[in-house]
Write a protein that binds this DNA or RNA. Sequence first.
DNA 1: AATTTGCGTAACTCACAGGTTACATATATA
DNA 2: TATATATGTAACCTGTGAGTTACGCAAATT
Lengths: 110, 110
Amino acid sequence: MEQHRLDVFQVIADPSRRQMLHLLSKDSLTINSLAENFDMSRPAVSKHVKVLHNAGFISIQDIGRERHCILKQDGFKQLQEWLTYYNAFWGSKLKKLEALLNERSGNSIK
Amino acid sequence: MEQHRLDVFQVIADPSRRQMLHLLSKDSLTINSLAENFDMSRPAVSKHVKVLHNAGFISIQDIGRERHCILKQDGFKQLQEWLTYYNAFWGSKLKKLEALLNERSGNSIK
DNA sequence: AATTTGCGTAACTCACAGGTTACATATATA
DNA sequence: TATATATGTAACCTGTGAGTTACGCAAATT
């Protein structure tokens, strides 16, 4: 088996994969119908799909010989969690600034 | 000049850079004090800092011969915007489900 | 003025992600 | 059953991101 087990950050680093996610946000698609939107070979698309699947960005439903790709929330959640930490950082930074402004006791040294 | 102009997605794809952001969320650091935390050469850290700077994740304040790296919100905002699109997607998906559940008029065909 | 410190840049190596083509396999269709 | 369709996998090639070392330069320090 191949080693294509990239983490969520590496997964969205690729523009093609981001576009795939965007397409899948409009409609669920099979591998081939996905591939029609790209200027690359079908096996290449197939690889990307595998990567997206392994990282929890899509689920796959086999219908006969077709593989339907459906957007899945897991991968996005991991990213949001990471970002939320920094959102909190900016929030607390703002708080500190406010606290400083409320200190109207005229501290001018340094 | 070098071509190290990676987009925000590529920037956070690297674990070392993510750790740098984390360290900088605790405290502003110079290049050297940053480098102390990593098992890599100082020039390597310097490169990463350049990348982070170009993508808007940090600002740099030159004090004498020292370069102080400070966390900056711009890069994070771009990522949040991207994620927000999909958050909205999940939101609307939930709405559709709710709407479906509220249709208690027993539609069973397909 | 000489030395040390903090940092950037150039040139190089290397691993590996992302692409290809060729082939294999399972499911529809004729 | 023979053929077409939808897809996965193996083997390979290639560009480039991420690391290195060597060097240069400006700002402190002595």
